[in-house]
């Protein structure tokens, strides 16, 4: 059944509708953030080794363990990541060597 309405009612419904969407979304954000926090709180904290009683000799420089097959860190100078990815792909293609068998140390943009 068609519901006839005047402009005032329509305006109120429109404002209220948008407000309801915002309110619903705001509450949803709250719930999602809370759920995320709850889950991260339940994650087991990695065990921290107890400090040694005597200062140990200087350990070799701590490094993040690399993923298997990683070819080390690539340094970019004035080069966007996308361009670097393209350069690496082109080099691998030109050399006919799979990209995972190449190691790139750094890429620098040369301006003329």
């Amino acid at each position: 059944m068609d519901v006839k309405m005047n402009i005032g009612e329509a305006l109120i419904d429109a404002v209220m509708g948008w407000a309801v969407v915002f309110l619903g979304i705001a509450l949803l954000v709250l719930v999602v953030v809370l759920a995320g926090k709850l889950m991260s709180a339940k994650k087991p904290v990695p065990a921290v080794p107890a400090p040694a009683s005597a200062p140990a000799p200087a350990a070799p420089q701590a490094q993040t363990p690399r993923a298997p097959g990683a070819a080390g860190e690539l340094k970019l100078y004035d080069t966007p990541e996308r361009d670097a990815a393209m350069v690496m792909a082109i080099v691998a293609d030109e050399l006919k060597i799979p990209i995972n068998e190449l190691r790139f140390i750094s890429i620098r943009e040369v301006r003329k």
């Binding site: 059944m1 068609d2 519901v3 006839k4 309405m5 402009i7 009612e9 329509a10 305006l11 419904d13 429109a14 404002v15 509708g17 948008w18 969407v21 915002f22 619903g24 979304i25 705001a26 949803l28 954000v29 999602v32």
Partner: peptide, 26 residues
């Protein structure tokens, strides 16, 4: 999420416009 809510503005703007053009509420 808030951007997803904000972008529903057109829904309610067009709803209001449709009433102005003589359509029934539904």
């Amino acid at each position: 999420f808030f951007l997803g809510a904000a972008a529903q503005f057109g829904v309610f703007f067009a709803f209001f416009g449709a009433v102005l053009l003589g359509f029934a509420g539904n």
